[in-house]
Design a protein around this nucleic acid. Structure first.
Lengths: 227, 227
DNA sequence: GTCTATATCATGATAGAC
DNA sequence: GTCTATCATGATATAGAC
């Protein structure tokens, strides 16, 4: 939860975490062995258990190292926006930008491993394991609640339940976009890599998502009639 | 590729495939062992290798059993829509509905295992394994090309590259929505299960996605200026 | 703190009886 | 087609030397 509960990491621990986020991204948690992991990190086989206790505890540490600062940054940006707005509701575009911008900026952190992490994160949002889901749920709890409330104030004309769904869709789009940062897998004529420019992607996503969030609410009306 | 290349399955094979799509969905491909799988299917440990040859071949069979008919249905619906339209471009809403409807209908197939499959499919779209990605790419190739062309005719005012991105975002939303059919994981106050009604979800998704696909193209214009 | 060596168990695959 | 038994390998984790 708290930011300062994180102990400083020594070099061995950092190398383990870096290797872990790359291998977990490539092969999943269960598909990555301690042997692969310690070999890639160039540390001893026993080092993971010594420093983290177990493989599960390592998984948690991988997320905690990046996610706690990322969410702190999101909240700081939301604070800043709300201070500027002086009580007025924020534009949906600004809220979307504050939420997705932090992740997207990391796509371009190739050497520092941030890119590996956000791809891993994108995949993990859809991980069905209860342990993982609970872990992510806790790490995101306060951030999500603040943003949900801010979106509700920004879009008072969208019913609460409809808004929940649209926010769900928004996370889906972000999650998939992060997970697939090396290819538009299914789009036939699309070019990969070189077009994954974070700034441009940010602008495209904001346009797409803002339009979706603001869509005229035909669905819930028509279904209410049918039900 | 072709539909009729699929051999009829006996009961043992069907039980193996049903167990596989549930376990692969829950624990991933590498996290599922043959022992778990054959135990759940109530068949002998050697049966997978006898009937399918290997674990990898089983994975392919799992996707082929459902995906080939699903894509055939998508194309049939597209044929039907284009016939009706008699040469005129189709509405984006109709195209979205034809593409996503087939997957969404399977969410409600609890007993038949269709729900397990679409959740698995949602996860697999973001699987980084080259083998898996190539497999899905091949299975979707013709379908994607036909739909991409139809969307391009439907939305002539959206530049080709921008449209590719928006379709990418659309698959992301669908993928995540399918993968997370038991919970809006990250949305705090949201209720799960009982609200995952396929018809309502379909309407909500079409509204959201159509608005996104049709969004005024501010992003690519502003970035072109900056570049 | 780091390493080697090893304990213990699970894995995918197959050979061969029925 | 189904089964048991088994192989070779690789898994996580730890004990104990340095």
């Amino acid at each position: 939860m708290s930011l300062r509960a994180v102990k400083p990491l020594n070099e061995t621990q950092t190398r383990i975490l870096d290797a872990a986020e790359e291998l977990f991204m490539q092969h999943g948690f269960e598909g990555t062995s301690m042997r692969q992991l310690t070999a890639k990190a160039a540390v001893n086989l026993a080092a993971v258990n010594y420093h983290f206790g177990s493989k599960d505890a390592l998984i948690e540490a991988v997320f905690r190292r990046r996610l706690d600062p990322m969410n702190a940054e999101r909240l700081a940006e939301l604070d800043r926006l709300e201070l500027e707005a002086a009580g007025k509701p924020l534009a949906a575009e600004a809220l979307i930008g504050a939420f997705i911008g932090v992740s997207l900026a990391m796509i371009e952190d190739g050497r520092g491993g941030g890119r590996n992490f956000v791809r891993l994160l994108g995949r993990t949002y859809t991980d069905p394991s209860k342990t993982i889901r609970t872990l992510l749920g806790h790490m995101y709890a306060q951030t999500m609640e603040r943003f949900r409330a801010a979106f509700a104030r920004s879009l008072p004309e969208v019913p609460r339940e409809e808004l929940n769904w649209r926010l769900h869709f928004m996370f889906g789009t972000l999650s998939y976009t992060l997970a697939a940062t090396d290819a538009m897998n299914l789009i036939a004529g699309a070019k990969p890599e070189d077009r994954y420019d974070a700034r441009q992607l940010r602008a495209r996503l904001i346009d797409f998502l803002a339009a979706g969030l603001l869509a005229r609410d035909a669905a819930s009306a028509s279904v209410k009639k049918a039900a």
